[in-house]
Simulated scan of single mutants.
Amino acid sequence: MRRVDYLLARGYTALRSGWVVLGVIGLATIIRGAFYLPAVVRESDRLPTVERFAPLSVWAAVWITVGVLAVVCAVRRRHLGLGVAVVTALPAGWGTLYLGAWIAGWSQAGYITALTYLLVACLTLAYYARAAIDDEGEVAS
């Protein structure tokens, strides 16, 4: 039972670290970007709404770059604000894009996709806004 308590305590400590959370979000962003690579996306699963603005390969590069930047910030434990800003701005931007596409009639279900992306952005901001983050990237008690 001690081992389980130890692992739970370590997990709790990690979740209270803004750096660890940023690293996890960054890795998820890299993975998401990899799944936007044209070689991975079947023709039937294309994203016409975002491809109106840039080819899917460009979007994949943007997502991967943002994820790498966030992971680098997390690993180096520097520029927490920058890392949080980029991993929040990208889904917020896509959410706004899909919401606009729905309003313009380009995407019949764009509001659903917009909700998903905007939720990710809001939850990321909520985590970092919930408690003050000190200069070391640890959530203040």
Rank of each mutant, 00 (worst) to 15 (best):
R32K: 04
W94V: 07
T13P: 03
A74R: 06
Y111W: 15
V86Y: 06
G93K: 09
Y128C: 09
A70G: 06
Y128I: 02
V24T: 03
T65D: 10
G137A: 06
A28M: 11
A14K: 06
Y127I: 02
G83W: 00
V120N: 08
A104C: 02
R42Y: 04
V84Y: 01
L123P: 01
I31R: 10
A74G: 09
A140W: 05
A104W: 06
E51P: 06
L90Q: 01
L97T: 03
L37Q: 12
M1G: 13
I31F: 13
L123F: 12
A131N: 14
F53L: 13
G26M: 02
S107F: 04
G100F: 14
I64H: 05
S141F: 10
V71R: 02
A74I: 07
R42E: 08
L90D: 05
F53W: 10
Y128T: 11
G81C: 02
E51L: 10
E43M: 09
R42T: 07
F35T: 15
E43V: 13
S44L: 08
D45K: 14
W59V: 01
A34K: 04
G100Q: 09
A140G: 04
V86R: 10
A101G: 06
L119V: 13
I112T: 07
L80A: 03
A114C: 12
G95D: 09
R32V: 05
V66G: 04
L123W: 03
W94S: 10
A92H: 01
G83D: 11
A121D: 09
A92G: 04
E136F: 11
R78W: 10
V72R: 05
T13E: 15
